[in-house]
Each structure stands twice: as structure tokens, then as C-alpha cells.
Design a binder for these strands. Structure first.
Lengths: 348, 348
DNA sequence: CTGAAAGCGCTAACAA
DNA sequence: TTGTTAGCGCTTTCAG
């Protein structure tokens, strides 16, 4: 469509027989400006439907007042909630937010991070894709001194600000809860080993077993493939059953996997939680809808978003490089899927 | 953090003793440029970690190669899927995408639409908030000739390109399906009357009843309040039951409402679908997880995103204003929640 | 209180 | 094949 001639600061300056600077100042309502001229400018701006050109502003100020966000997937309730938290605080502080998804693809992540860099965001908040095992595209940010904050999924080899959940503790608590409920043969459906969170959760799982004198059984550590989706859980669960492995409880690396596991168990007429108890991680809304309701670890997603912005702003406003690491804890929300009806006396 | 001196086109021009234009051209690999100089430029660019400044590019080209998107909420699977469709095609066509959420707030919608306008997006794709009943903030786009496409939720008073679902037909089919299953006393849990989609779905509901000789009963048209969330469905369903109204089927304006209805029915020990059948609209993934699985109308969300971009691009590339309206149909996906075990012979 | 002028980094005629 | 030059729209010293 043909370009429409936008009215600029110059147009209104000419019409008023003043200079560009005066108009600029009037618009920003600078103190030292005549009340009369200010009014005249504002009126004309309204009349001509003037809208400031942010591009020009950014170029001259060398700041876009924009923060970039890269998440693996928008369709996860967890991530979209984090984003809401980010937007809330960012807007309050006068920043715009550009959201991008990597679609869990390393390649796409590299592309969007470069685009964002070229778009001169004032800072970047990211949770890496599950494929990512190279951080060169983020190192460029560091070289150029553009503030960086990771949340949830971080690059292990980068020393930057981050806000993460205590995955280890969360996993530990979940498994201990299962043990307290009388479960002894507890399987863990693990996430992709690429992700630090997967590793931490495995560690928590193992240590909880250890503490309660339950030997770790390799067959009960189940790989769900590269995905974190419901389907992966279903398939892995069926494979486990087919292999004749029959735990009395399952701790899943995330809710979608847990849901997949549950549907498979139900299909196999296995009673939850009596025969097999299940605990997930994330607390997606779906957890309350499935039957029985799924016990899960609640992550304070909105808060994570806000803190990410806070750490980013701290860097933006700091004269020197800054690295802060926040660790939040996930709260175990116990629902029916892990509540054995039989109460066991177990030594603790 | 202190600003880092970016290397610009000028820096590398000086070092090579050539002009800015030459460097610019080399970078864009313009045809008429010496192979030697081109290589020299590219090498130096790499060495200095040069990244083009998109802001400057946009200012001089008067085009940002960016399209803006405004959705009510990112946390709805439907919207995040539409966005994936948008991004897919947009990237393929060399466009960036800026995503914003209105958070279902009219006020927020106005703000982000202005920000996007100031950020000089080349076009805007939007699905309005449920509060929005004024379209002045979009009229500005029209005045300034910046292409606009609405999807799903459109402004009734604006003549612009749009891609929508045939809500009327979808609703009609859902209700007819219920009737074919022997249901006669069918309630509709309706959406906010502000939204055209609510109205269309009500119309489809009524006409299906009409066609099958079932009189419309006002008491069975149930208002869910201003929300479209699970909770609203639960509350409205309980209120209905408390009022002694007992339909034999329910068609809900969207899946979250349907889910809320189902949980309330189950709490009241009402059998689904035998006592009350349920059909939703949207097909959120949650529909397959609840018990019994929820029948629903599947919207081709990804496709809607792609088509939105297509219509937008058509406008961007058209010398004259263009208005295209696409209507897609929603497919009824029948699951257990609406399958009465008793087969009735009904006159059709 | 207001103006002049330089500059942000890049593109694109028009020349050479 | 390359250089010169004039912008794009706005901010911001420095003068007046």
C-alpha cells in the first residue's frame, strides 16, 4: 500500500513558525517552554493526528526502551504466565516487550537472538530451547554489553544473571512425599539430559531415595526421548509396562509427561494412586482437571517474570557489569494422584 | 550499563579506505561490487563482530519489516497456535513479528496498538479484547494506511480484512449433533454479548433448535458473565442447577466454560453424557484429557495465523487499499461427552 | 524561553 | 565498480 505522508515534528514546527526543537520539547513537555507555545503545539499535534516516530527516537537516543524475550514455546501455560509477569513490570517501568519463540529449535533461537540484537533491545530475557548446547549467540550480547537474564532454563557455561527454581529441592520433596505415602519402587520419567533442570531433578530424585535407604534402580530411571509432551509420556509409560517394569509410584519431570503417563496407566486399568502414585512438575491448569487431580510442584511463574525484569533493570541501570542469581522454591501441591488411601507406617 | 561502542558501517569503511556506500552494498551483496572489496568487507565485519543496526535501516527505508500482533491472552492454546502460524509464514517472507497481549483489557489494547503504531510496524494482526467496543485506535491505522487484519474477534464497525470461523455454522452443527443424539432440552452457555462470535454462536444454537421444531426457551440461554474461563462455567452451571433448571444437554461457547460446566456436573453426580451431554468450542488440548473426553469444534488455528499473514501481505504489496474476508469452518470433533449410549430414533 | 546545527547509522539517487 | 551527498525523524548541546 502506498506510503502515507506522516506528519512530523517538522510539519508542525513550520506551521507554527517555530523550530523543531521547540516542538520536540513541547511534546515532551520540557519545563522551559512557553505555556502558549506548548498549547499550540499540542493542539496541532492532535489535529494532525501526530504520532511520534519511535524509530527515529531510538536512533537518536541510542536506546529503544524495549526488552526482548525468547521462550521455547508460547503454548505452555508456564511460559505465557512468566511473560505476563515480565510485561506487567516492564510496562510499569516504561519498557516495551518483544516476545519471540524459539519453537524449541536451536537454529530458530540463534536467528531470533540476532534479530533482537539488531533491533537494539535494551536487554534480553531468555529461557533456552531444549536443543541448545552452544551459547555463542548469547556471548555476543555479553561482548556488546547488552544485559542478559536467563530464567528456568539457563546456559550452564555462561556467567549471567538468572532466576531459576530449585529443581533439586522440588524433586527431592516430591519423591520424599511419595515415600512417606508408603511407596518404595519409585520411577522417574526424566527430561532431556541437555537441560540442566532435567539433571537437577534426577539428582533430587536419587538423593531422596538415598536418604530413605532405597537403592537406586537404573531401570526405574526412564528416558522420555527428546520431547516434553504428553505423547512422550504415554509412549514411555507403555514401553515401561511392556518391559514388565511395574513401579508403585512415578515422579515425572513435568506435567505433560505426567498426564501422558496417567492416561496410559488408566488405559491399562491401573489404579491411580493406589497401584501407582503420580507426581508432576509445573502445575499446568490441566493438572486440576484430569482424574484423579495431579499432584505437582507449583512454580511461581508470574513472579519469575517480574524478577527477571528486575534483574535486567538492575543491569541496565548499573554502571558496571552485574551478575545476580535468584533461586526460588517450588511448592509441592498435593492432590489425589499421589495420595495412597492406605496409610503406611514408614520409618522416617 | 555503560554503552559499548558498536562497530558501524563507517568504521569498517574507514579501515578499508572505501566509502560507506561500498560497505553497505558489499554487506547486502549488491551485484556491482568488486569481489575483492566484498571479501575484505565481509572479513572485517566478521572480525569486528559487526551487526547491522536495524533501527537505522528502518529509519532510512521507512519500513521495519515487522508485523505487529495483538491477542487477548497468550495463555490460550488457541491464540498461541495462531501465533505460531503467523510466525511461520512471516519469517518465511522475511518479516519479524512483535507479539503483544491486551490481557483482555480495552485500555491495554489501546496502549499497545499505539506503541506498535509508533514502532512503525508494517502491518497489524489483531484479535480484540472482550472489553473492546470502540475501534478508534484501529481507525488511526486506516487513516495512516497501515494494513490491518483481524482474526477471530473482529470489530463489527470496521471494514477491514479478516479471517474468522463460521461460528454460526459451527454452533448449528454442534446443536444439531446433540439433537440427533436424542437430546431435546438443550442449554447454551453463552459468551459476552460484546463479542460478535458470541452472538453468532447463539444464532446457530437457536436456528438448530428451530429447524428441529424445538421451541427456544429463554431460561436455557445462560449468561456466563464477562469471563470465558473455567470458573465462569462452573459458577453458571451451579447457579443453573440451583435454579432447578435441568437440561439434557449443554452447548458451551468455549472449551474452558465447558470444562467448568463438566466439573460442576460431576460434582453434582450428574452423568455425562447420559444425563447431560456437553459440547464445547475451540478444542483446547485439555478437551482430550478430561473425563469423559469433551466433544468440541476444532478451529484450524495454525492455518488462521498463516492466512492472516497472507491477507496482510496482500495489503502491504497492493497499490490500492484491499479488503478480503475469509471464513473457515470449524469441524465438529465428537468425543464421549456428547455420545448418548442410548440411541434414539429421532425424526430428521 | 527558543533556535541552529550536529548527529544517531544506514540507504539510495546521482555522479564519476 | 565506487564515491558523494542528501536525507529518514528525532534529540540535544550550545548559543542567543
Amino acid at each position: 500500500m502506498k506510503k502515507y505522508k506522516e506528519t512530523t515534528i517538522l510539519d508542525i514546527a513550520r506551521e507554527l513558525n517555530v523550530s523543531k526543537s521547540t516542538v520536540s520539547r513541547a511534546l515532551k513537555n520540557h519545563h522551559s517552554i512557553g505555556a502558549a507555545t506548548k498549547k499550540a503545539v499540542l493542539d496541532l499535534a492532535k489535529k494532525y493526528n501526530y504520532h511520534p516516530n519511535n524509530i527515529a527516537y531510538s536512533l537518536s537516543k541510542k536506546s529503544t526502551k524495549t526488552i526482548g524475550v525468547i521462550v521455547p514455546l508460547l503454548s505452555h501455560y508456564y511460559f505465557s504466565t512468566v511473560i505476563s509477569g515480565i510485561e506487567e513490570l516492564a510496562y510499569k517501568e516504561g519498557y516495551k516487550v518483544i516476545i519471540c519463540q524459539s519453537a524449541e529449535s536451536y537454529e530458530r533461537e540463534v536467528i531470533v537472538s540476532q534479530t533482537l540484537l539488531s533491533s537494539k533491545v535494551d536487554g534480553l530475557i531468555v529461557s533456552i530451547s531444549r536443543e541448545t548446547n552452544n551459547s555463542d549467540h548469547f556471548k555476543v550480547y555479553q561482548q556488546k554489553n547488552v544485559p542478559l537474564v536467563f530464567f528456568d532454563r539457563v546456559c550452564p557455561d555462561l556467567d549471567v544473571s538468572s532466576v531459576v527454581i530449585d529443581d533439586y529441592q522440588g524433586a527431592f520433596n516430591a519423591v520424599e512425599h511419595l515415600i512417606m505415602g508408603g511407596k518404595r519402587k519409585i520411577a522417574h520419567f526424566a527430561g532431556p539430559p541437555m537441560l540442566k533442570i532435567s539433571l537437577e531433578r534426577i539428582k533430587g530424585y536419587k538423593d531422596a531415595l538415598l536418604k530413605h535407604g532405597i537403592p537406586f534402580d537404573e531401570n526405574l530411571l526412564i528416558d522420555c526421548g527428546s520431547g516434553l509432551e504428553q505423547e512422550n509420556g504415554s509412549i514411555a509409560a507403555q514401553a515401561m509396562l511392556d518391559a514388565g517394569i511395574r513401579p508403585d509410584a512415578i515422579f515425572a519431570v513435568c506435567d505433560p509427561i505426567a498426564i501422558g503417563v496417567m492416561t496410559t496407566l488408566k488405559k491399562n486399568k491401573i489404579k491411580i494412586p493406589d497401584e501407582i502414585g503420580v507426581v508432576g512438575f509445573c502445575d499446568e491448569p490441566i493438572a486440576t482437571v484430569i482424574e484423579p487431580p495431579l499432584s505437582s510442584l507449583v512454580q511461581p511463574a508470574f513472579k519469575i517474570g517480574e524478577i527477571s525484569v528486575e534483574l535486567l533493570l538492575n543491569q541496565i541501570n548499573s554502571p558496571i557489569p552485574l551478575v545476580e542469581k535468584k533461586v526460588l522454591s517450588a511448592e509441592l501441591k498435593i492432590r489425589e494422584s499421589s495420595l495412597s488411601s492406605v496409610l503406611n507406617d514408614n520409618r522416617i
